[in-house]
């Protein structure tokens, strides 16, 4: 199981700020495909991913127990 945190527009689209997914091990790209198939996110392709609070690359590996955050384009400041 992994936790996937959602923010901003994605949070509104999913109507929740966290989803739990049965995911053993795989790349960010693989996780992204699963998310896209289950939810109708408008911004997934331009979002960054973070694994355990650090930005991750597409080929980085997500393992069961990790907390993944989907980070749409930021707009702080």
């Amino acid at each position: 199981m992994i936790k996937v945190l959602l923010f901003a527009q994605l949070q509104e689209e999913a109507q929740t700020d966290v989803i739990e997914i049965d995911f053993q091990e795989g790349t960010v790209t693989e996780l992204k495909k699963i998310l896209q198939s289950q939810f109708d996110f408008s911004q997934l392709s331009e979002s960054m991913f973070a694994i355990n609070e650090a930005y991750a690359l597409e080929h980085d590996v997500v393992k069961s127990g990790d907390t993944v955050a989907v980070i749409p384009p930021v707009s702080g400041g």
């Binding site: 923010f7 901003a8 527009q9 509104e12 911004q43 392709s45 331009e46 960054m48 973070a50 930005y55 597409e58 955050a69 980070i71 749409p72 384009p73 930021v74 707009s75 702080g76 400041g77």
Partner: peptide
């Protein structure tokens, strides 16, 4: 750098609507 890498998002509430503001430059990937 804050506007590039810090995970903070802003939702604007106008007189006629609201929207989460994100990247306007169409950065498809990082």
């Amino acid at each position: 750098r804050i506007k590039q890498i810090v995970p903070i998002w802003k939702k604007e509430q106008w007189e006629d609507g609201a929207a989460w503001i994100g990247d306007q430059l169409e950065n498809v990937s990082y």
